[in-house]
Nucleic acid binder design. Sequence first.
RNA 1: GGGCGUGUGGCCUAGUCUGGACAGGGCGGCAGCCUCCUAAGCUGUAGGUCGGGGGUUCAAAUCCCCCCACGCCCGCCA
Length: 554
Amino acid sequence: MYLEIYETIERALAAATGIPHPTLTDGGIHADFATAISFERAKALHRPPVQIAEEIATALRADSSLEGITIETKGPYINFQTGPAFLKSSVEAALQPAYGTLLMKGGRVVLEHTSANPNGPLHVGHIRNTIIGDTLARLFRKAGYRVEVQYYVNDMGRQIAIVAWGFSHLDGARKDGEKGDHHVARVYIAANREIERDPGIVPEIDLLMQQVEKGDPKTEVLFRNAVSECLEGFKVTLALLSARHDRFVWESDFVRNGDTERLLNRVRRMEECHEDGKLWLDLSNEGFEKEYILRRSDGTSVYAARDLAYHIWKGRNFDRLIDVLGADHKLIGAQLIATLKLIGEKAPEIVHFEFVSLPEGSMSTRAGKFVSADELIEEVTRRAYEEVTLRRDDLDENTKQEIARSVAIAAIRYDIVKISPEKSTVFNWKEALDFERQSGPYIQYAHARACSILDKAGGFDPAFEFTMESEIALAKHIAKFPFVIRNAVQDLKPHLVATYARELADLFNVFYQFEPVLKSKGGTRQSRLTLVKATKNTLAETLGTLGIDALVTM
RNA sequence: GGGCGUGUGGCCUAGUCUGGACAGGGCGGCAGCCUCCUAAGCUGUAGGUCGGGGGUUCAAAUCCCCCCACGCCCGCCA
């Protein structure tokens, strides 16, 4: 409803001013919508903006498409206020299942996220990628797109060769109960120490990489076992985080099926291509000073070449390609896009996020300096369990544990997704363990409260008489949900949904504080129950988009 | 050195692309609210040169230029 009204006013404004895309903003505290377009016209007409605002307002009042909308001027500003009919239809829409889901779009989207090297567990930096990516995938689906989520398994890089070397040369058997990814990290860290101590090992690593590229069966098995063990651990962590991948795509497949070789052959025909032992592209016309190396002088391909092959494959099977990558991939991502465009293939849209570091400095798997996602989940869950026990000792053990798990994931996911991706952050235990305002649990709590009220209310007939300030504010915010989904998908900004969810919970809590629902009578009671139900539904849909459980009780 | 990003009250953060009506929140501080629908809640209050300096504009946190600080990148690594 909000979206429709927004567009209606925009059209009327365009007609009244002759400006094709007039700026129409949220009216904030002044109105539902507002425009300062009079300034723009004042310049062209050489007359005072206040006068022009009044003229435009007069024209708009005569526009039949704006019936039911109050149009007022305040100096140079024109304010638009919607009426009760708008509130009724908005709340009515919000009562429907799957509220906020947009019309089905054509085409398929492939979204790649996480894709961490399988040389150690996912840490608090990696899961920023996971959570941004998974939320984006949910957003795209909510916005009516068909989405396939992929994890690109880097199974033939140097790091994996080091792990493989460690597995065959070091005594590092898996301990009882040790997760595969943590085991792999232990071996990886130990192997790196050995290499530091004895650089003579480096040629052995190089040899492993050549053998795996050639398809030597024994080396392939060695690599594959190490990678599989790590991946097995990743899958457990990802499931705990409620992040789902539809497919794990192995990098080495693009070497084995010949795609990488075909790509290199195509590249050879480009005028930007140079071969002097190594094979590389000169992308200086594209603004890149550095050589873009695709094959080493020993004949092995580098990551960039395999990634190009992967993207060509994605481009041929999907209509839109989205990658979520860390800021350290900005350069190589831009080179990838430039190259794909040069050879006439579909290029991905890349969502970059800045780094997460620890108070003592940046994280490093190799140095064993990181806070693993598993450790984070465990600690936050423990803390959540404490909190549930404190508040709800009436619940049985199983229920308390289930709630604690949901609350913990809510806290972690929300804590990460609420920050815009371009901001680098420092991991902070205190904030990670905070379940108060501006947190996932805070929003879950609002939902649980709404559920509790509805549970106690029993049956009721929907009604739509909203008169109190907090009722109107809440209903208006509910109306914005589809608009928020549209904007978040359009701008690839999942944090807009996080902000919206928090605002919705805020408004519901204020309403809850000031307007009794169950104790009110007649039409007021019915209207408030209707509003609670619409809020509950909208909160649940919002939480679902954020990958957070909408708890019924907590 | 070059490129990209960030800089908003003691701390964290929204707003910056698409310039406009007192720069929104939260944490922490202070003062209040549970015989009343879950207090993981609500209300009030103090706290701001929007990194600094120029410029454009009727209007700049927002656009342009210079500078400073921090992060990331600049590998025949991924």
